[in-house]
């Protein structure tokens, strides 16, 4: 770059030329740096526009009214386009989930780590194997060998804490971030 320009010029010779060369190089590099920084900043909006928009984010959390869910019942709500299982567990189911020897689990996790309140189990109802929706939400549906959920696609069995016990799924059903706004309302997301 600098060679061609130099050839076109007249040579003034000696130190002055070197000095001029240095000053020009500095100007070239600093301008290039400022220009490159500006370009990089200008590119960001074009990438960021692909992220979820404000209206999508506004629906990123869902409030669920749990006052009408009886003990032993489950409901399925939609959160971020996916089914979420909300289960009001019975005392039996809770104790069953709590007494399991963690060493026997493919994905060891204590029941206490999966719930905020033991009687409310909230999980994303998507099998961790290949994304099918497990059975077990409705009365009379196949609940699998461990009394929780059963995925009919490839035969994964989940227990009453939603943990994988048998079958090809690699991990437990995901627990979404959630908190209890009050006794009858839970905020998912």
């Amino acid at each position: 770059m600098s060679d061609t320009a130099q050839n076109a010029g007249q040579s003034t010779g000696g130190n002055a030329e070197i000095d001029e060369q240095t000053r020009r190089d500095f100007l070239i590099w600093s301008t290039a740096a400022v220009g490159a920084a500006g370009t990089a900043l200008a590119v960001w909006p074009f990438i960021d526009q692909m992220n979820p928009a404000a209206d999508t984010l506004a629906l990123a959390s869902t409030e669920v009214d749990i006052s009408k869910i009886m003990v032993g019942q489950s409901v399925t709500v939609i959160w971020r386009g996916k089914p979420v299982f909300v289960r009001h567990r019975s005392a039996d189911e809770i104790s069953e989930a709590e007494v399991v020897d963690l060493a026997l689990l493919p994905d060891p996790q204590a029941d206490g780590a999966r719930v905020t309140k033991p009687e409310w189990l909230i999980m994303v109802g998507v099998c961790t194997h290949l994304g099918c929706i497990p059975l077990g939400q409705k009365q009379g549906e196949e609940k699998g060998e461990f009394g929780g959920w059963f995925c009919p696609c490839h035969g994964s069995h989940y227990d009453t804490s939603g943990r994988i016990r048998k079958g090809p799924a690699p991990s437990n059903l995901t627990v979404p971030t959630h908190r209890f706004v009050d006794d009858t309302t839970v905020l998912i997301g």
């Binding site: 000053r23 100007l27 301008t31």
Partner: peptide
């Protein structure tokens, strides 16, 4: 402004 300075400098000897 920087581009202008650079332009002046590069064209100085033409």
């Amino acid at each position: 402004a920087m581009l202008y300075a650079l332009k002046r400098r590069i064209w100085a000897n033409v």
